[in-house]
Structure formats: C-alpha cells, structure tokens
Design a protein around this nucleic acid. Structure first.
Length: 477
RNA sequence: GCCUCUUUAGCUCAGUUGGUUAGAGCGUCGGACUGUUAAUCCGCAGGUCCUUGGUUCGAGCCCAAGAAGGGGCGCCA
C-alpha cells in the first residue's frame, strides 16, 4: 500500500500535490477536522473534510480509534495549530471503532487505568512518546558500543547454572508437573527433564560475556533478564532488559569512565533525536507537578535535569567516604534515618543512597570499593583485604541504575572466595578456565535499561516504560 | 514478603454526625452550530457505592475477613 508517513508530511511545504496518509483517528472536531496519528511522530495530521459533500453515515464512522486512509492535497493551514493540513478528496475507513465501548476518550487518563489496557495504551500521546524514546535509546546503545569496537554477544536466555547469585530464578522444565519423575531417593529426577538437568531463565549474561571478552577484548550483551523475586516496587520487573558490557585489559576506573560516557551518550542521542517527545514529556510532568503539593514537585524540569547530567561529571567516591558523609549527615544525627549509620560495613539502604544523590551531591553518584561481604564472589579483591572493586551508579529518583565491578582474575583468590560462599566450583569449571588460560584484568557492569528510560522520560513507574510489564501476579497480554 | 493508603457512573472524583430519590466534570447517546485545536451550546441516559459477613430501626459512611490498585520498605538492575 502506498502511503506517506505523517512525520514526512507535517514538515513539508504545502505542495498542493496529492498524498495518501493512513493512521488512527485521535479526534474529529466540528464534523470537519480529523486529527490523525500514525505513530511516526508526536504530531497529528489535520485532515479537513467538507462535510456537506460527504455522506453523514460515513462521517459518523470517523470516531476516535478508527483506522482510516485519507487522500488529498497538502495545503497551508488556515488554523493556528499546524502549518499544513490535508484537504480530503478520498476517504476510506479500514476499521471502525465504536465510541461507546472504545476505552480511550479524548481526555486525560490516569497511568493506572492505561496500565490495565496496555494493549491500547500505545495510542496515547504519553506512551507513544515513551516507546519511541525507548527505541532510540536501544539504537543509541548499539551505536555507542559499535563505534567503540565492541561486539554484540547473544548470551543464553536459558541457563543450567544456578550459581550466578543474582537472585531467585524462574525454573524451565518440560516435565509433567502432575506426575514429576522421582529418583530412588525421592528427589526430582532432572535427568528426565529436557536438558537432562535443572534449568532456569537467566538472571544475568555477565559470566558468559566474560568468556567472550577473553577473546574479543570488548563485548556487550543486551537482552531480557528474569528475576523471580517477589518485588513490588515502581523500580522492579520480573522481566526486564539489561545491557552488560565486559572489557578485557580494563580496571575499575576504566569501568566507571565507560559507564559514565555511555549514559551521557544515550541521553545526548535522545535529546537530539526525540526533541518533540521530550518536550511533550517535559510539559506533561510540569502539568502533573502543578497538581502536587510544592514539596513533592521536581526541583528541575525534565529537560533541565537531562542537560544538567550531561554537563556535569558524576560524583565519584568510595563506600568508605560515603559512610563518613552519612555518619556526619543531619538526618543521621537527628535520628531521621530508619536505618541509622553506625559503623563501616553496613549495607546502604535506599534512604542513604537517596540522601547522597538527591540532597548531598544533587547529581549522579558513582560509589566504589564496597565491603566484600555485601558484594558478589566475582568482584576483584582490593589490597586492603576488606573491600572489592565494585561500583554502583546512583541516579536521582531512581536509585541504582548501574552495578558493576572489576572482576577477580586471580584464580586462587577467586576459588577461595567461592569456597567461602559455598559456590560449587565443579559446575563453574568453564568460568574458572578463563582464569587458568590467559587471565587478564577485566571489568564490566550491568545497566538496567528500563531504569535509564525512567530517568530519560521522567516517568516514575517502571511498568510504564516497558510495553507489557511482568511482575508478581501479572502476566497479562 | 512487610507497612500504609485507596476502591462510588465508561474515565477522574465529591458525598456532611449513620437517615427519604447517591452527585459533579469529562466521555457516550440525541439535537443545534460549523475553520476547529481535548471545539462549543442544549438535552437524555447511565450506579452490584469492590466482595462476603456483621453491628443497627436504618450502612456508600461503623466493624471483620478477602480481592484489586497506588505509595513506602526489603531483594536488585
């Protein structure tokens, strides 16, 4: 079918040549003006029908949500809201949309309501903007790595390794759950299962990415990740997308530099390519803020926040320095923290991270060199014997957006740590082999894609930045 | 998983100390108007007050249990 996309029509000069546009009706005003959107941009095309020349029964079918095609000449608009409009000569209704049962009315809807009709919410301005930005962000990430000579590695979605230690896993099985085969001891007989052993959905592609990095030097993964945690927050999903670069011949500082430049690259890219989407979301947030008490409003608007992050270095400090700041902080002294900071070694709670990012530094913060007790087995042990070369990047309003580390490349140290944490080494022989054959300093991190979308779009619930969110008790659509 | 708030028309919400027939805006439907910008104006319709049980002469309102949704916390990206 031959059609011109609205994004191409809306910015062209009035040619008075015939064009055909296909899309979905947003509104039909005054029985004359059809606002049509085809998802190619924020803007609607205004199509003008002379209602006296058209059958009233046909015009009645131009209702919000209907799919239509209009053909006509492109003219300079007489109205104020748009430069050009299409004067309709031909009109075709592909699919009607009954106004009394179509849930999207030309009015403001709550995000909670739209979440329940996620199959239709793509058609709203807000979600149209969010998911177009999501696309550009994914594209920007690939471009960032490609430009720097990274290779995109597809790590497995199904894994038999349960030693990754990143959280509860979803089991993958073809066994008949109504009659599970048992061993003589009465345990489940996974030998009869599809893979001949217990299998799960991946919680991270990192370990496999490390294997690839030991050949290609620089690799990254970008794929779905699954966590069976019973997490009920606006920042967690059971199925989310994660970007995990892994770099050979790199240390903790290289790791931070890579993460910071990548985040800035993506923000910069979206600001360049999604101007109207960001302007819309910026305005939307401003309107929302007007309804809120002054205390809950954003100190800076969305666009200002993005510009601010681009033009400032992330604050880098060690865990130990952070503990000192928190110890001396007013909320700690006045007992305002639910979990008071008393001594070195405590895990930071989100109230502490929020204080550092939102109150103390007021910008993204990179925390490094955490106590080894609160971090994963594969992180490189520092010379002090107490800390590991971990780093977390914390963003205002969202918290942890990146978690990474320089990896422990020294075989003996790694094995000792695995022993201490009761991680089965036989199963992980392939991971340990990289430390046996040509081990080198290397580092990497995991970036939560949806959390970055939250920051860039100003949305506040992670369920609104993935098309079909998966979370405890919900796998609808 | 823990804490907390919410649930009233299609949507967003109001509903007084427990008292007759539960309201508004927007939307739908009908009509008017016709260069509008979530068009405007007039009118009609639309309710399992989340569910179940209880207290009471009487419950949208009080009590208990449950369900769904939001927010906070934990786990983390």
């Amino acid at each position: 079918m031959q059609r011109t996309k609205i994004v191409d029509v809306i910015n062209s000069q009035p040619t008075n040549e015939a064009v055909t546009v296909m899309g979905w009706v947003k509104t039909f005003r005054s029985n004359r003006f059809i606002a049509i959107n085809d998802g190619s941009c924020m803007d609607n095309l205004q199509a003008v029908v002379d209602f006296e020349k058209w059958d009233a029964v046909l015009l009645k079918k131009i209702a919000p949500g209907a799919a239509i095609a209009v053909t006509g000449s492109l003219a300079a608009s007489q109205g104020q809201g748009q430069a050009v409009e299409l004067i309709v000569d031909q009109l075709e209704i592909f699919g009607e949309s009954d106004p009394s049962s179509y849930p999207l009315q030309p009015k403001k809807h709550s995000l909670e309501f739209l979440r329940q009709i996620a199959h239709l919410r793509f058609r709203t301005n807000t979600f149209s903007a969010v998911f177009r930005i999501r696309h550009y962000m994914a594209f920007a990430i690939h471009q960032f790595f490609h430009e720097r000579g990274f290779y995109y590695i597809h790590t497995p979605v199904i894994t038999a390794s349960d030693a990754e230690g990143a959280g509860e896993m979803f089991q993958v099985t073809t066994l008949n759950l109504n009659s599970i085969p048992r061993t003589e001891e009465g345990n489940i007989d996974f030998k009869k299962d599809f893979f001949g052993r217990a299998a799960n959905l991946t919680v991270s592609g990192q370990l496999e990415a490390e294997l690839a990095a030991m050949a290609f030097s620089q690799v990254y993964t970008f794929g779905p990740t699954f966590r069976a945690e019973n997490s009920n927050t606006p920042r967690h999903l059971a199925e989310f997308w994660m970007i995990e670069p892994e770099v050979a011949f790199a240390d903790a500082t290289d790791n931070m530099n890579l993460a910071e430049s990548m985040l800035k690259y993506v923000i910069q890219y979206v600001m360049e390519h999604c101007k109207s989407e960001l302007e819309f979301l910026n305005q939307r947030e401003q309107d929302e803020d007007k309804q809120k008490p002054a205390q809950e409003r954003n100190e800076m608007g969305l666009l200002d926040r993005l510009r601010f992050v681009l033009s400032n270095d992330f604050e880098r400090l060690t865990y130990t320095e952070a503990i000192e700041i928190l110890k001396q902080s007013n909320p700690n002294k006045k007992g305002k923290f639910q979990y008071p900071i008393e001594q070195w070694g405590a895990d930071l709670q989100s109230e502490h991270e929020r204080y550092l990012v939102e109150k103390h530094f007021k910008k993204p913060v990179i925390l490094s060199n955490y106590p080894k007790e609160i971090k994963a087995f594969y992180m490189r042990q520092n010379d002090d014997g107490k800390t590991v070369a971990a780093m977390d990047i914390l963003f205002p309003g969202i918290g942890e957006i990146v978690g990474g580390s320089q990896r422990e490349e020294r075989l003996e140290r790694l094995q000792k740590r695995m022993e201490e944490l009761h991680i089965p080494q036989e199963e992980m022989y392939w991971y340990l082999d990289t430390r046996r054959f040509g081990a080198c300093p290397h580092a990497g991190f995991g970036l939560g894609f949806e959390r970055l979308i939250l920051f860039i779009t100003g949305m506040t619930n992670i369920r609104d930045v993935i098309p079909f969110p998966r979370f405890p008790g919900n796998a609808e659509f």
